[in-house]
Amino acid sequence: MGFFDWYLKCIKGHYADFEGRARRTEYWMFFLVNLIISIVVGLIGRAIHFHMLGSLYGLAMFVPGLAVGVRRLHDTGRSGWWWLVALIPLIGWIWIIVLFAIAGDQGSNQYGADPKEGVA
């Protein structure tokens, strides 16, 4: 699966899906493609003198970004409410990045089946 396919999977298949689990690859590929698209959209917005274009894109991507983050936390066995840790200045964002980077639980957990089980 290509890196853009991971992005499309989050947009098309799981836009506002806060249930289940997301692999590290799914979260980080979504993050990477979203970052690249955000930069491009921001540059296009500046070029056409419509500076709100980047903000509109960010608003459209808020829900799927939050949803894939919640599913990623579910993969590590944590509730989606752990996202609120990011509200703690500096330390919160570092801790969230660590949580998103650690390996998920092997096998099923309370949030669903292991997303890696079907991958060979």
Rank of each mutant, 00 (worst) to 15 (best):
G2S: 13
F3C: 08
F3A: 08
D5P: 04
D5T: 07
W6Y: 15
Y7F: 15
L8T: 09
L8K: 09
L8V: 12
K9T: 15
I11S: 11
G13I: 05
G13F: 03
Y15P: 00
Y15K: 06
D17C: 11
F18G: 08
E19V: 12
E19L: 08
E19R: 13
G20D: 08
R21P: 03
R21G: 00
A22S: 10
A22L: 06
R23V: 05
R23I: 02
E26P: 10
Y27N: 10
Y27E: 05
W28L: 07
W28G: 03
M29Y: 00
M29K: 12
M29Q: 10
F30G: 02
F30K: 13
F30V: 09
F30W: 12
F31Y: 13
F31L: 09
V33C: 11
N34F: 07
L35D: 01
I36M: 12
I36E: 07
I36W: 12
I37H: 02
S38E: 01
S38L: 06
S38P: 06
I39E: 11
V40A: 06
V40D: 04
V40R: 01
V41M: 15
V41G: 15
G42R: 05
L43H: 06
G45I: 02
G45H: 03
G45C: 12
G45N: 10
A47W: 12
I48N: 07
I48H: 07
I48C: 01
H49A: 13
F50E: 12
H51K: 09
H51M: 11
M52A: 14
M52Y: 07
G54M: 07
S55K: 10
S55P: 04
S55W: 13
L56M: 08
G58K: 01
G58A: 14
L59N: 06
L59K: 08
M61S: 13
F62M: 10
V63W: 03
P64T: 00
G65E: 04
A67C: 07
A67W: 08
A67T: 09
V70K: 03
V70Q: 08
V70T: 02
V70G: 03
L73S: 06
L73K: 07
H74M: 08
D75S: 04
T76R: 10
T76N: 04
T76V: 09
G77Q: 03
G77R: 05
G77N: 07
R78D: 10
S79E: 11
G80H: 02
G80M: 09
W81E: 13
W81H: 05
W82D: 09
W82L: 08
W82F: 15
W82K: 01
W83G: 03
L87A: 10
P89G: 11
P89W: 08
L90P: 02
L90K: 02
W93E: 12
I94G: 13
I96S: 10
I97A: 11
I97G: 05
V98D: 03
F100T: 01
I102T: 14
A103D: 15
A103P: 07
G104Q: 03
G104D: 04
G107M: 04
S108T: 13
S108W: 00
S108A: 15
S108M: 02
N109A: 13
G112Q: 00
G112T: 05
D114M: 06
D114I: 12
D114C: 00
P115T: 09
K116C: 00
E117T: 01
E117P: 03
G118A: 14
G118W: 07
A120S: 13
